[in-house]
Design a protein around this nucleic acid. Structure first.
Lengths: 198, 198
DNA sequence: GTTTATAATTGACCATGGTCAATTTACCTT
DNA sequence: AAGGTAAATTGACCATGGTCAATTATAAAC
């Protein structure tokens, strides 16, 4: 199957859609995004949006993916954590971003595990990158002896991912009448998961 | 606020709704459940369904909750596992039930963490019971020395929950082109999470 | 410049979940 | 039995995401 390069017009339309969607999302939040609003404000028909994005979640995934990538940049810039606590600190901005809106979490979870399948997907790429980043941290931390050494850094990285999702799920379920923020709740799990045998 | 006991009629209506919904779900699967179908086959108006259940997920939660409770009964009957592997075996039926349909996972996840808030909710009750069961297993296993003793059994139980959700999320994301079943994937995580320091 | 093939867009239409003012039914009081 | 009151039910209506045959714009071929 041969695919032709997209025309200018299409790229412009896509850019405009994303611009409008971003605008709506930043002023009203992710949950408030309505397909109707996006197409109306973009000045385009509804069908057009769905020819650019598989579904509403596909659009959201692009928006959210961009944010996640930004956070990953920040995290990467901070360098390898010196302690398990510091992992939590590095993660805090990402966690509180996801914690602001349930739909962010939902979209991330839906696309989370597709390791390598179609890497063009922003979310997938983000997850791969995140796991890779975690693994590189952990590998170095293992060498310094502040993280357990009896299993691979990849396994440990995936575990962090699991705990991340766990505390986020709790965060949304308890309707925030909970005292712990996601990153506070994460801390003890990481300690038990990562600390070397005594 | 005083609440009067529900009348016979209401109980019958609810029972009929659940009966029909169960029928649809067992023949066509959870994803195929349509509110329209349920009310039509029950011979009742749409509004009635929503006066009995908060929303479609609320209805699903009752159906799914019943199944989960059944699985918990089975698990409880099997007694305390003798090894970490055996935990996976005990969990396998529950895991493969959840693995059959994404909506089961979604509903469970949405209601998962509401620890104690309104225990009338079936799902919440199921989760509380599950965590309690895990914790009791782990506590005994800790005493025999086959599970790490450097943290509470409740913490370990919650961790199992996190890994359960993790492998299930992976299972649905990879569209099953994955070789590992959820319970196969779970095994290594439990080993690393639970095994005592060497 | 005309023709032609394919990319891009359109918008009427559909599917499905959910709401709520109005109506009917059941129960209690006198 | 009549009347009153709250529970239970109704169904027309709405909100929102998504589809697809038909139409229009673009670029390549001649």
């Amino acid at each position: 199957m041969k695919t032709r390069a997209p025309q200018q017009r299409r790229l412009q339309t896509r850019a405009k859609l994303l611009e409008v969607a971003t605008q709506i999302v930043t002023t009203q939040g992710y949950s408030a995004l309505r397909v109707e609003d996006v197409v109306e404000q973009t000045g385009v028909a509804k069908g057009t949006l769905f020819s650019h994005f598989k579904d509403k979640d596909g659009l959201l995934a692009v928006l959210i993916g961009a944010q996640v990538m930004g956070h990953l940049d920040q995290m990467e810039a901070k360098g390898v954590p010196h302690s398990i606590d510091e992992i939590t600190h590095h993660l805090e901005p990402l966690l509180s971003f996801i914690g602001t809106d349930r739909v962010i979490f939902d979209v991330l979870l839906r696309y989370s595990g597709s390791t390598g399948a179609q890497v063009d997907e922003v979310i997938t790429a983000g997850f791969v990158r995140q796991i890779t980043l975690f693994a590189s941290w952990l590998s170095e931390m293992q060498q310094v002896g502040i993280v357990r050494n009896d299993t691979s850094s990849e396994m440990l990285a995936e575990g962090i991912q699991a705990f991340l999702n766990h505390v986020l799920a709790l965060w949304f379920c308890t309707e925030h009448d909970n005292i712990d923020t996601p990153s506070t709740a994460l801390e003890p799990f990481l300690q038990v998961w990562l600390r070397p045998a005594v």
